[in-house]
């Protein structure tokens, strides 16, 4: 801002260079994507690759259109999105609540910490069969699966943030005779908004993993179901289309959280 006011020719040159570089990078980004799609399509058209095995962009598009027309794409994407968002919200809310509980009670934290670390290390997909038996094969099992994957890491990272609150600020609260609840509300939670948001960012990815994993194991609908089904009946078009849709949805959800992060950083900054 300051620089544009009294801008020397050298500085203008420098700014121009920066801008050109920026434009070049985004051009190359999109160019790469277009190139991959074009080469893929071309190789399929000239028969260098078997589009029955690899599918190709035009067939993906056709499948996409036909899935849209009969509305089944919206059903499947909707189911997956619902499962992901629900497990994401549950993981965030319960993860933060559990972290608050552990912050509040030292003994509880000391007792549970090793258990949490072991649970975190366990590959949660191994719990799949148990979850199916306990919760039943259905949406519930999928949500629990996604929850298992993201909950523990939320608890651990949020708790870590809580424990690292500036000691001086805690002393300040002590000097004001603040109760533990006041310390939580006025200091610990606001100081950890950035921590919680970065946990959200990790959770978005993990919840997608959990949901798709869950759908692989049990489901009659959803993008994960479409992928598995397409694979079983050798309809690679269906598999690829579902994967692309999944990719777009995950990116959109991540972008939402990133936007939230930007807003939160503006308000809460770094302590």
């Amino acid at each position: 801002m300051k620089n544009t006011l009294n801008c020397s020719p050298e500085h203008k040159k420098y700014l121009g260079k920066l801008k050109r570089k920026h434009i070049a990078v985004s051009a190359m980004r999109w160019g790469l994507l277009v190139l991959i799609i074009a080469v893929w399509e071309l190789l399929a058209r000239i028969g260098a690759i078997d589009s029955f095995i690899t599918s190709c962009p035009s067939r993906i598009w056709e499948t996409f259109i036909s899935l849209c027309e009969d509305g089944s794409l919206f059903t499947h994407a909707g189911v997956t999105l619902y499962e992901t968002v629900v497990s994401f919200l549950l993981a965030t809310v319960f993860g933060t609540l559990i972290a608050i509980g552990l912050w509040w009670c030292d003994t509880l934290r000391n007792v549970l910490e090793p258990h949490l670390v072991v649970l975190n290390a366990l590959p949660k997909i191994a719990l799949g069969p148990i979850i199916i038996i306990w919760v039943g094969a259905g949406t519930g099992a999928i949500i629990v699966m996604a929850l298992m994957i993201s909950l523990i890491i939320t608890v651990l990272s949020t708790l870590n943030g809580f424990m690292e609150v500036d000691k001086g600020k805690l002393t300040l609260m002590d000097t004001m005779n603040a109760t533990k609840f006041q310390k939580l509300v006025y200091l610990v939670l606001p100081a950890n908004v950035p921590t919680i948001i970065s946990a959200l960012k990790i959770n978005v990815g993990l919840c997608w993993v959990g949901t798709i994993m869950g759908e692989y194991l049990v489901s009659r609908a959803g993008l994960g179901y479409l992928i598995i089904y397409g694979g079983q009946v050798f309809r690679l078009d269906l598999v690829m289309t579902s994967t692309v849709v999944l990719c777009v949805l995950a990116a959109l959800m991540y972008a939402c959280v990133a936007l939230l992060e930007k807003l939160a950083y503006k308000k809460f900054g770094k302590a």
């Binding site: 001086g168 006025y186 770094k270």
Partner: peptide, 27 residues
Amino acid sequence: CGYMLQRDELFPWLTISQNVLLGAKVK
């Protein structure tokens, strides 16, 4: 008793007026 520490320990997410009123709010 009012206590003043070595570092100001102002909360970066509160404005100056909110920071100044923190003690009153807590009490």
